[in-house]
Design a protein around this nucleic acid. Sequence first.
DNA 1: GTCTATAACTCGATAGAC
DNA 2: GTCTATCGAGTTATAGAC
Lengths: 203, 203
Amino acid sequence: MDKTNTRDTIFKTAVVLFSRKGYHGTSVRDIAREVGIKESSLYNHFNGKEAILDGILAYQMDVFDKAVHALDALKSTDVDDLTDPVEFWMAGTREFLKYMDPTSGLISRILINEMYLNQKCREFYLDTMTKARKDLVKALFSEMRKKEMIRDCGIEMTADHYVYLLQGLEIEHTLRELDGEDPGVLKNELIGHITLFIQGLAQ
Amino acid sequence: MDKTNTRDTIFKTAVVLFSRKGYHGTSVRDIAREVGIKESSLYNHFNGKEAILDGILAYQMDVFDKAVHALDALKSTDVDDLTDPVEFWMAGTREFLKYMDPTSGLISRILINEMYLNQKCREFYLDTMTKARKDLVKALFSEMRKKEMIRDCGIEMTADHYVYLLQGLEIEHTLRELDGEDPGVLKNELIGHITLFIQGLAQ
DNA sequence: GTCTATAACTCGATAGAC
DNA sequence: GTCTATCGAGTTATAGAC
């Protein structure tokens, strides 16, 4: 580890510990010990514990922005040949997931942990992880409706339902993975649910 | 406050504080101060902080058990005259909600806060707040299918989708209420979503 | 940029008088 | 069942030597 990477090591270590033991359950001491430096040295890289959390929020915001823009770009280019709604949707889902690295998965956990307690986390969850996702799904459903890939289903509320389905599965699968369930099985379950949902819109 | 009610006051105070500041963010000192006794006195009623949390879980388990049994009883009695699926469903929802007092709403928040961090809370969330709810909805959907109130929609997965919708709305509405939104508006939104979902099964 | 040392405070929990 | 008093450990953060 170079000196220049210490800040990054602190960041990634904090994400892991915050997601595992919670923000309040993790001390600056824990992070420093795991990184291999003293607590006081950590303050040369971050102004304090809360500054680390701010950095984590900024990171996640960046990841989401990039994913949404990538999907916006994809929408208006090379997917015109995809006429099957399920295939169309899965292509978009794969594109979106490209931007979701393991770190951003852990950050989602931190945000859900803190959303009731911390104003910034709550705002992020409502704006980015819920509203922005709903808007994105709405735009994509509209696109599919124009191409007559799906029926007239009340796009506004249906998009909401899809996002709630996704969030519910994300939470449940994370919990079940913590209890030792096989991630492969969970992924297949996820694909099954998504497929059924989109098929329901197509018929 | 009688002496005999001190334990109950501690319990309810803990529920409020845990839901507002989190389990780790609330100290035994906070609870004692709010109740109006010294910390040491609190230990005459609970063996410790964790024992209070255990009591909270037991309370919620009891609430859910009673609500589920009430709905089971209702299913096989006086709702035979209800042939409209939305009316049928709303009658059941109202019956279920009768058992959900404000305390149990706050406890749900505590559980979601702790589900990633605490094994007992995670188990409760998965078993009671997710699986038991799915099973209940499945049973009711089967009942409705037998009476030909709904179409053949793949009851297993559809019940899951309904529970995820409910959980998603519960979380989002709690967050928005924390940010000062009008509970009345949120309740109407909830009714709108439920109605649309059940209508979608009826057609 | 890292360290030692320490300030200033909060935590859960207990002993023992009344 | 409530209190005072206290313990031992943990908390974030800073000062200053190297």
